[in-house]
């Protein structure tokens, strides 16, 4: 067990993306949009994708983020990394790729990268669901990132319920 409290030493990259986020804002002609996280988590990412239906290439990707600087930076750098990629290539992006692109996230902020990838994979699944397609590379089971995004959403719901119960008991 480390004897020191976990600090928050962001890399200058995180600050750069936080100050000048690329690909910010909703996308009017998005083919698909997906979210991960929740207001209660204090962490919520929306990903908008405009996909070329023939080539399945992501022509444009944008984001919105209710969250900390790492959250904003992870979502923003991800939209840059997936633009021009096929959906299959984008699917294979991992949270570690995002962390590396940001010069390494502090471990307490890994979940920001996980949430961004979780939102992206939800968007990709939703795209194929809408098209009625089921490519063979798309796993049926949820991937680690999707599961973890879901777990965070569930966890905070449970926490919230616990607090509500506690406050009621107090009344």
């Amino acid at each position: 067990m480390p004897t020191k409290r976990i600090p928050l030493p962001y890399s200058p990259k995180v600050l750069e993306y936080f100050r000048n986020p690329k690909n910010l804002g909703p996308l009017e002609d998005a083919s698909v949009v997906a979210m991960a996280g929740s207001p209660a988590c204090g962490d919520m990412i929306a990903i908008y994708l405009k996909v070329n239906d023939e080539s399945e290439i992501i022509e444009k990707a944008t984001f919105e983020s209710y969250g900390c600087a790492a959250n904003i930076a992870a979502a923003s750098v991800m939209t840059e990394m997936i633009t021009g990629k096929t959906l299959k290539e984008a699917w294979n992006l991992t949270w570690k790729d995002l962390s590396d692109a940001l010069g390494g996230l502090p471990s307490i902020k890994f979940h920001c990268g996980i949430l961004a990838v979780g939102a992206l994979r939800r968007a990709i699944r939703e795209y194929y669901r809408k098209k009625g397609k089921n490519p063979d590379w798309l796993p049926e089971d949820l991937t680690k990132e999707e599961k973890m995004a879901l777990e965070e959403e569930e966890l905070v719901k449970r926490l919230q319920k616990r607090y509500e119960r506690m406050l009621k008991r107090g009344e």
């Binding site: 030493p9 890399s11 502090p106 471990s107």
Partner: peptide, 17 residues
């Protein structure tokens, strides 16, 4: 601790200004 946990923030401070 992850690799990013004990790094220097000198560069961050420079970028912050």
């Amino acid at each position: 601790m992850g690799a990013g946990d004990f790094r220097s923030v000198e560069e961050l401070l420079k970028a912050h200004g």
